[in-house]
Design a protein around this nucleic acid. Sequence first.
DNA 1: ATAAATATAGTAATCAATTACTATCTTGAT
DNA 2: ATCAAGATAGTAATTGATTACTATATTTAT
Lengths: 209, 209
Amino acid sequence: MTKTKPKKIPAEERRNITVEAVIDLAGSSNPDSITTAAIAKHMKLTQGAIFRHFPNKDAIWKAVMNWVAKNLMARIDRAAKDITSPTGKMEAMFLAHIAFVADHPGAPRMLFGELQGARPTPAKRLAQSMMKQYAARLRDMITSGKECGELRDNLDVEAAATLFIGTIQGLVMQSLIAGDMDKMRADAPRVFDIYLHGISKAGDAEEQE
Amino acid sequence: MTKTKPKKIPAEERRNITVEAVIDLAGSSNPDSITTAAIAKHMKLTQGAIFRHFPNKDAIWKAVMNWVAKNLMARIDRAAKDITSPTGKMEAMFLAHIAFVADHPGAPRMLFGELQGARPTPAKRLAQSMMKQYAARLRDMITSGKECGELRDNLDVEAAATLFIGTIQGLVMQSLIAGDMDKMRADAPRVFDIYLHGISKAGDAEEQE
DNA sequence: ATAAATATAGTAATCAATTACTATCTTGAT
DNA sequence: ATCAAGATAGTAATTGATTACTATATTTAT
């Protein structure tokens, strides 16, 4: 009897497994074309069983976005926590963000996919509020970086925050395209270095050999 | 009879119209979920008629990618043509790229979507070769920028090229998310300014008041 | 009149969701 | 402790809608 016994698993854990399955699948295929059948197969269930735990597909997507928002922000917060200097905090956040994405390539794809979508789904609203929170936190950090003299006085705060997020998104996109997450981990510090040059007060050349 | 008379249009022009229709639709919905029916409706044709001009859907996508690659590269080349300084060239390319995307929001979505896809479609190969060409051109430009003294001697050429493309992709992503292409046009110069700071030789502060 | 362009009306496949039913766990009265 | 009753989690089959694609009839410009 090599037949795998379909274990009975409590509802909440099953929902978590479902979220993981979706993120897993999103790592190697377009999120929008992930079918409930594919999800079910990946977690060794029948397609119909999924709807015992979620009212519909949108609810699954909402749960996934929730997972992404929660875990990503937690990881970034944790990385920046023990660092005092604003630029140090930013570097830690940058690298933590990249590391998270490298660990979960499906996560940014779900995010992008959902944010680009036309429909105002619950998942989309979640994603948008996360991005807003992220940007606000960045602006504060950059502002305090100017105040404490680490960053240029004439630095455009808005643009610097946009570039910070954009740099990450760009790195992620290129790595997703190349299908090589390790390359991203290697590129991240080198790219951040240039970004730092761009926003730092002249003369602060602590980095590089 | 409000019925619109379906004009007869020669095959080649009809193919061009089809490509435009797809890019148009991609501006406001996920490229992967654009149906042939939607394309047909948008160009006031019946769904079946499309297959008189294309053998299958992949062929449509290939034609679209071809259009994007050709027009984008042409626009960038044209912008950089009359400029001699490498950093000047780069700025012109940057802004031209942004302007192109602002004019055709569907274009980057088609690109991203295709490059992210798992299947090695003809369209994907086209997109990949375009990106490769783009990156190579950038590296050359940055290298010559170092040689002529505009850029830092210790600048990481690879990273600088990655950041250039990443910056654009990031800007584009954020604008697609916000659904506001005008904002992108306004942000682009400010963001490029910081990038330029990041790669320029210290002391070259020609920009900003 | 003819040939290209489009309409009409199909196809099989696939999608999310629902159904009828079964298997397994949990619990409380004895 | 035990064991029926109910709750929980699963299967298998099916639904109506939608998909890419096709076969054939009709229209229109030359």
